[in-house]
Write a protein that binds this DNA or RNA. Sequence first.
DNA 1: TTGGGTCAAGGAGTC
DNA 2: GACTCCTTGACCCAA
Length: 293
Amino acid sequence: MIRLGYPAQNLSLPASTNHTLRLANLPDANRVRSLVRENLRALEEILHWNAGHGVSLFRIGQSLIPFASHPDFPYDWAVEHAPDLGRAGSLALSLGVRLSFHPGQYTQPGSPRPEVAARSVMELRYVARALSLMGSPDGVVVLHLGGAHGDREAAKTRFVEALRHEEEVLRFLALENDERTWTVSETVEVSRRLGVPAIVDTLHHALNPGGLKLVQALDLGLPTWRTRGSNPKLHISSQDPEKKPGAHAWAIHSEDWSGLVEALEAVDSRSADVMVEAKGKELGLPDVGASRY
DNA sequence: TTGGGTCAAGGAGTC
DNA sequence: GACTCCTTGACCCAA
C-alpha cells in the first residue's frame, strides 16, 4: 500500500508549526519559549487533522524550534521542550503519522569551508535530537548532497567524513537526489557509504536522470531501506507548466502519479511512503490510486 | 491596519 | 564581481 503525506504546513487549518523570529530577537528567551510551545501545539492539531483525513506522513518545518542550532540560542531547548516533544511524538505514533524533517539548501556538510560544514552538522543534530525526543521509530531527516565544488569525488568524501561518526543523525538520515547536481545513482552510492537509505524524488530524477529510467532509479533506491527496517520513502511532485523547470505545480498531475504507481508495480514494491511536494500542500494530494494499490 | 521589504545560512548559473 | 534563483512564511516597520 502507498501512504501519502505533505510538507511543512496545512492550508486547511489556521495553525502553523512555522512561527519564527528574527535573530535580533533571539535573546528574548520567554518569547522563544512561547513561540516554540505554540509551534508544538499546532503540530498536535495538524497531526489530528492528518489522521482524520487519512494522511500518514507529515514533514515538520525547520523552524519548529527556530535557531535551535544557532550558538546564541538562549536556553537548552532539548531539556525544556522534551516533555512537549515527547507528547507530540507519542501522539504521532498513536495516530499512525510518520514524521520527517528536511533541512534546506544552507545545510552543506560537504562544503570545503569548515565553518559551513560544522554549522550544517549542528543543524542535522538539532533535527535528529528532536526526532529522538519525540520517540519517533521511523522518523526521517531528508538531506541533499549539496554542492559539488568542481570535484565530485572530493565533495562526496567530505560529505561522508563529516557525518560518518554522527550516530544520532545517521539513525534518521536519508539522502535525496537533486535536479541539477547529484543523480539517483550517485546519491545511492553515498547513502551506501554512510549506511543510510536514499530517497528518489521523481521530478528531480526527470530533470537529472543520469541515463536511468524511473524504474531503474527505484530499483537502486528502494533496496537501501532494507537495513533501516521502515517503509521506503519517495518524493513526488509535478512540474508547474507556467514556470521554469523544477517549479512545483499546485497538485500532482495524473500522468505523474500513474507513472510512479506503474514503476512501483514494475519493481514489485508493495509498500511505499510517498511525500507529495505540491504547492497546494494537503489540498494537492492525489485522491485516487493510493488506497487501491 | 496593511503592504512591501527583509530575514541566518550556500552554491550554482548567468552576464 | 554582481546578481538571481532555489523556496518561503513570517517578521518588521513605515505609511
